[in-house]
Design a protein around this nucleic acid. Structure first.
Length: 876
RNA sequence: GCGGUCGUGGCGGAAUGGUAGACGCGCUAGCUUGAGGUGCUAGUCCUGGAAACGGGGUGGAGGUUCGAGUCCUCUCGACCGCACCA
């Protein structure tokens, strides 16, 4: 029989309008049902949605729709991470105001997003560049400031002398500004910092509790925080008077995680920027020129990799803490970092590779003090490799014979009690790699830092009732630098304290600040008086499932975790961890194509021909062969992008969503292929056809129970259980497989019924039930098709409002089960027995099988292992 | 160098320690349909055999176990992250 094909172009907008009209996805803050918060990382409004967005939002949407059907009040919002540099670059290139550009992009991206059919609560939409949002961010900043969580200090920054702005480390490529190409300078600037280090220990410890986060992300954060336990040791300076520039210097503080190796010390290294190095250099031209020289070696990673260990003997000597007569030379060394620890180290060449390289270059003694297990101490020598493992202490006086960890404790204990100038020589110290978060940016298109500089009163926060500090509209981008800085009037303001003329802060905030609390704002974006509403936060936070790309594994997620703690401390939320569940999805990738001249060729211009195992690509216009290149992340430069608009126009949103979900596990990359999309398209049509056939079936003769019907019901209820479980675990590719299996089962039952004429009442009933279940199970993934099918089944309400089907456990229980029978672990036969058959019955049945008899042959049966309802293994 | 993830058909991928390869793509054959992205049926890990029925098989080598893709040890390879952090 002929049926009309399913036409998404007609149905998809219709169902979207129906959902909209009934406001199905707007979430009330007063709802007695349990809440569930699904959030995908909000997009930067670049102007176009790409396939990565479609994948990200589809994953979240499946979960949102499923949880809604399970009876939760689901919060699933969308907004825009709308501040940032691209808007300013566009302003410079096209003479369009960053705000205008951004809002136009938001409008067009919203229009692209809507046809995907996502169940989003658009009533909560906001953009971070809107003063109604950043007003509250300024309030948070001031509250943090008052709580001592904000710091203003000088810091070394990457300065682009052409663009007149600070660059983030990742914006410096081979020592040059990524945009201007100018050689980046290191400058000391006074900057605003958020004191993330105050929470370093908490941020590290709490990672253990985030058991619904990928292990990988937790490890990355742990490394980034870089907690280490060690000892601060003060070395007395032995010859201050004899060293020009060292007058008054009494001690030098060093941080070490290996106090056990103290007797292997050969030298002290200090950073080029260490205060002591500076004072010494002021009296020592040779040292000054050495420092200037090593500063020149680039900051680029490659340069650091290749840099040789270099040092300069300052002439200064310090005394060993356990032996005042033993002095160590103090070097300025290029591999010692000022930013970590105290900016000074003691070098133990035998047990640290860097120190060893240095010692070899400057001919310093290499004394092994930790002997590896099983090695004779007398013969233990260090060659080109330092030994950093455990072992027994040697050449270490009172430590000799101890294990390294006991020696660590012994040294720490002794130095904690030893005195130098009235203070302890040693102090246990937990150190972190994590630095405070510098948020000052010399840019226009960001959230203004709400501070005022007064000559008399110093730095003053803007009074809260004067917020927001809005960005001026009349700015120009024809010159490099920060337009706020050169605006004639904007920065002029009266000091809130004394009323004298003062100056606004013209730096704006790093855009990572904007995204560090937006998830909390979504719980009540209507609150004009405060950033958050306690009841709304309590209702929805933390986010139950957060979904986004792994590229934000460190910065965004760590900043958000910090912000949540800071907001707790300032009374804006009552929780510490913002995201209990985190999922990092893979990228959308595609084959690349190049024509004969080597030019990248778009997938739309390529036709793939295959015969057998051969795949060849041909240019559709020229007919010339095209070479198929590696599969890579979709990018404009390689022209291997597929435009969501085109796909939706050709196949509809459901096909695109289904394919995204079906082909790969969500955490892995998915390869976009035209064949795959067509397969998804065929399945859409197939579901539609099946539904129409089932809907038109008329119950024939026969009213007894049918085994066909029973098998179908089992398949359907099994699918309910499996799909539900897989959605909970975000294993959508397995859901898809389950749904295919159910569709196949329905298909064969239909064929069976129509061919044999066995359309008994029971079979038709079972078909209708299974078909309804099929539609409901795929509804979270292909919501439009599901509505159309639901309607075809004669249902009056929307499937989007239908409760999730519940499986009947009785349907999953088999009366008879088929057990594989192995002989010595190899399967030789199957037996079918009653579900509750006892061991003796099973054993008898197993040994009666021909295949089993043949495999046993003349051998004696040693043992028979029977795992009930699983397997039988005969051991011979 | 350090840390993490992962190696399964032609491809994407399934397998609470219990029948390896579900499901899809592709391919093969037959039927159907036929002007515009068809549909249905059967087959598709390798290998011997007409078949029945065998042999082998989850990067490699060992081990634990009645039984290993799964657990353990070593090893090879790929990808990702960090990288002079004392």
């Amino acid at each position: 029989m002929t049926r009309e094909r399913y036409n998404p172009k007609e149905t998809e907008p219709r169902w979207q309008a129906a959902w909209e009209e009934k406001q199905l996805f707007s979430t009330s803050n007063d709802d007695s049902r349990p809440a569930y918060y699904v959030l995908e990382m909000f997009p930067y409004p670049s102007g176009r949605i790409h396939m990565g967005h479609v994948r990200n939002y589809t994953l979240g949407d499946v979960l949102a729709r499923y949880k809604r059907a399970k009876g939760f009040s689901v919060l699933h919002p969308m907004g825009w991470d709308a501040f940032g540099m691209p808007a300013e670059n566009a302003a410079m290139q096209n003479k369009v105001h960053p705000g205008e550009w951004t809002w136009a992009n938001i409008a067009s991206m919203r229009n692209q997003l809507k046809p995907i059919g996502l169940s989003l609560d658009w009533a909560r939409e906001f953009a971070t560049c809107d003063p109604s949002y950043y007003k509250h961010q300024q309030r948070l900043f001031i509250d943090f400031y008052k709580a001592g969580l904000v710091d203003r200090k000088t810091a070394k920054v990457n300065w682009d002398p052409v663009d007149h702005t600070v660059l983030a480390n990742e914006q410096v490529i081979d020592g040059r500004g990524w945009r201007s190409g100018a050689v980046v300078e290191q400058r000391e600037l006074t900057q605003w910092f958020l004191r993330i280090t105050r929470f370093a220990d908490q941020l590290d410890n709490a990672l253990d509790s985030l058991d619904r986060w990928p292990e990988k992300v937790r490890t990355m954060q742990r490394n980034w925080i870089g907690r280490s336990e060690g000892l601060l040791v003060r070395f007395a300076i032995a010859n201050a008077a004899a060293t020009p520039g060292a007058d008054g210097q009494r001690d030098l503080k060093v941080y070490t995680t290996r106090p056990d190796t103290l007797f292997g010390a050969a030298f002290i290294g200090i950073a080029a920027d260490h205060p002591l190095a500076r004072t010494l250099a002021a009296q020592n031209p040779a040292l000054a020129s050495f420092i200037a020289d090593i500063r020149k070696t680039g900051t680029a990673q490659e340069a650091i990799d290749k840099a040789e260990k270099r040092g300069f003997d300052t002439g200064l000597r310090v005394a060993h803490p356990f032996d005042p007569d033993w002095t160590l030379p103090v070097y300025v060394a290029n591999f010692v970092l000022l930013e970590y620890g105290t900016g000074a180290i003691f070098g133990c060449p035998a047990h640290d590779q860097r120190d060893l390289d240095f010692a070899r270059a400057y001919d310093l003694p290499v004394t092994p003090v930790v002997c590896p297990p099983g090695v004779e101490p007398a013969t233990f020598l260090i060659g080109d490799e330092a030994y950093d493992g455990e072992g027994q202490l040697i050449n270490s006086r009172f430590l000799d014979g101890m294990s390294a960890s006991d020696a660590y404790e012994e040294v720490a204990r002794r130095l904690e009690t030893a005195q130098l100038d009235g203070a302890a020589v040693g102090e246990r110290k937990v150190n972190f790699r994590l630095r405070d978060w510098g948020i000052s940016r010399q840019r226009y298109w960001g959230c203004p830092i709400p501070m005022i500089h007064c000559d008399a009163c110093g730095v003053q926060p803007v009074p809260v009732d004067q917020l927001p500090v809005t960005l001026p509209e009349d700015v120009s981008f024809d010159k490099p630098g920060n337009p706020l800085d050169r605006h004639p009037t904007w920065s002029k303001v009266d000091c809130p304290n004394c009323g004298a003329p003062a100056r606004r802060e013209t730096d704006t905030m790093d855009t990572f600040v904007d995204s560090s609390w937006y998830f909390a704002r979504f719980t009540d974006p209507w609150n004009a008086g405060a950033p958050t509403t306690a009841t709304a936060v309590a209702r929805f936070m933390p986010v139950d499932q957060y979904i986004g790309g792994v590229e934000h594994a460190i910065l965004h997620l760590l900043y958000s975790r910090f912000f949540t703690r800071a907001m707790k401390e300032t009374g804006h939320v009552d929780l510490e961890e913002p995201f209990t569940g985190l999922f990092t999805q893979g990228m959308v990738v595609h084959e690349t194509y190049r024509d004969a001249s080597g030019a990248w060729t778009e997938p739309g211009d390529v036709r793939i021909e295959s015969s057998g195992a051969d795949r060849r690509a041909i240019h559709v216009k020229t007919g010339e062969p095209v070479s198929i290149g590696p599969i890579e992340k979709m990018s404009k430069s390689k022209k291997n992008t597929v435009d969501p608009d085109d796909i939706i126009a050709a196949y509809g949103a459901d096909t695109a969503r289904w394919f995204m979900l079906s082909d790969s596990p969500p955490e892995r990359d998915v390869i976009w292929t035209d064949e795959g999309v067509q397969g998804a398209w065929r399945f859409v049509q197939r579901v539609w056809r099946i539904t129409q056939e089932v809907a038109s079936l008329e119950a024939g003769s026969g009213d007894g129970p049918s085994p066909v019907a029973r098998a179908l019901r089992k398949a359907a209820h099994h699918a309910i259980a499996a799909v539900s479980d897989d959605i909970e675990k975000l294993r959508f590719n397995r859901c898809v497989a389950q749904i295919y299996e159910l569709a196949n089962a329905i298909q064969s039952a239909i064929n069976n019924a129509t061919e044999s004429g066995d359309g008994s009442v029971d079979v038709v009933d079972a078909l209708r039930e299974a078909n309804a279940i099929l539609i409901q199970l795929l509804a979270p993934m292909m919501p439009h098709l599901a509505e159309s099918c639901w309607e075809a089944l004669g249902r009056k309400e929307l499937v989007a409002t239908a409760p999730w089907p519940v499986h009947d456990p009785a349907m999953l229980v088999e009366d008879e089960i088929t057990l594989p029978v192995q002989v010595n672990g190899k399967r030789r036969a199957d037996i079918t027995v009653a579900r509750d058959a006892d061991r003796a019955t099973i054993e008898q049945a197993a040994l009666a099988e021909d295949g089993v008899k043949r495999a046993i042959g003349d051998a004696a049966v040693k043992k028979i292992i029977i795992v009930l309802q699983r397997i039988v293994n005969v051991v011979i």
